[in-house]
């Protein structure tokens, strides 16, 4: 059982490293774009099917935004809905079978040149070799072994994605705050230096919350699958029967967590936004 905190590199596109998580996030983005264009292309007055779902989500956030921020809240509904849709789509795509299990084995060919130099004392060399693995990968005695590289990885099980979202959201919030209240008024929020720290901790907590939930979910599913394999051995019938009891509840849990995390991300965005965005109501009080 090997779980990597980092996304695995698939190939390099020029200087750009294409990892499995960014591939997944592109797939989710592409899926949403295609859906949006298809639904937007033949938009009907009386909604049905997917259009209904999109409208439901939009209306849900519209209701919450207007509840929190009044009429000005409806301006931010597109951002909230996009966040929600992107996160929930990539979370649910990450739970699908094949994500994390479909892949290929890769051997570090460059390292194999002198890997057979010390084949005898494998255990003795293991600790020192691991220590300077970064400095000299050639001496790593695992380098000859094939390493499994999954083709897909849940897009939010990668800190790059979650931090990108968190930074976008926080930048957006502060830009909106400056736009609505003016720079001097906005900076007045940060007389206390602890406030500045709190802004950075918001980014961290945004990023780590989403990453942690999704990543922990993946770890959980992998652990359950390993337990399943340990219990059933190689009997396929047993695998099917026991798998239904062991893995299915956790799959359901992951679908639920995927929804909740998307919802929470959008809700937190809304509530942080309402801290800094001046509505007409509060302006009239000044």
């Amino acid at each position: 059982m090997h779980i990597s905190l980092k996304p695995e590199l698939l190939f390099n596109l020029g200087p750009f490293p294409v990892t499995n998580s960014i591939l997944s996030s592109w797939i989710a983005t592409l899926l949403l774009i295609v859906l949006a264009i298809v639904v937007g292309g033949n938009f009907k007055r009386i909604p049905s099917g997917i259009q209904h779902i999109f409208e439901m989500i939009y209306e849900m956030f519209e209701g919450m935004a207007t509840e929190v921020m009044g009429k000005a809240g409806s301006k931010f509904v597109p951002l909230l809905a996009t966040l929600f849709l992107f996160i929930i789509t990539s979370n649910w795509l990450g739970v699908l079978p094949g994500v994390g299990s479909l892949g290929f084995y890769e051997t570090h060919v460059a390292a194999s040149s002198d890997s057979h130099a010390a084949p005898a004392a494998k255990d003795a060399h293991a600790t020192p070799a691991a220590k300077d693995a970064h400095a000299a990968p050639a001496k790593d005695d695992h380098s000859g072994e094939p390493v499994f590289v999954p083709l897909f990885r849940g897009a939010n099980a990668d800190l790059n994605t979650t931090f990108a979202l968190a930074i976008i959201v926080m930048v957006f919030i502060h830009v909106m705050g400056i736009k609505s209240a003016g720079l001097s008024h906005h900076l007045a929020h940060f007389k206390n230096p602890l406030e500045i720290v709190s802004e950075f901790s918001k980014v961290l907590s945004f990023g780590f919350r989403l990453f942690g939930n999704v990543f922990a979910g993946e770890v959980l599913l992998t652990a359950m699958a390993s337990i399943l394999v340990i219990i059933t051995g190689k009997s396929l019938l047993l695998y099917g029967v026991i798998g239904g009891f062991i893995v299915t509840p956790f799959l359901m849990l992951e679908f639920f967590v995927g929804f909740i995390q998307a919802f929470v991300f959008a809700m937190l965005t809304l509530s942080f936004l309402s801290l800094f965005y001046k509505t007409e109501n509060s302006e009239s009080h000044h």
Binding site: F16, T82, I167, I168
Partner: peptide, 26 residues
């Protein structure tokens, strides 16, 4: 596993998604 290039790429792809969804759907 944080890579600035990947971070920026994700941000851009999200921006594109936001633009397209906003323009065609929302």
């Amino acid at each position: 596993g944080i890579n600035p290039v990947l971070l920026i790429a994700q941000a851009i792809s999200f921006g594109v998604l936001y633009y397209v969804l906003n323009k065609f759907l929302f």
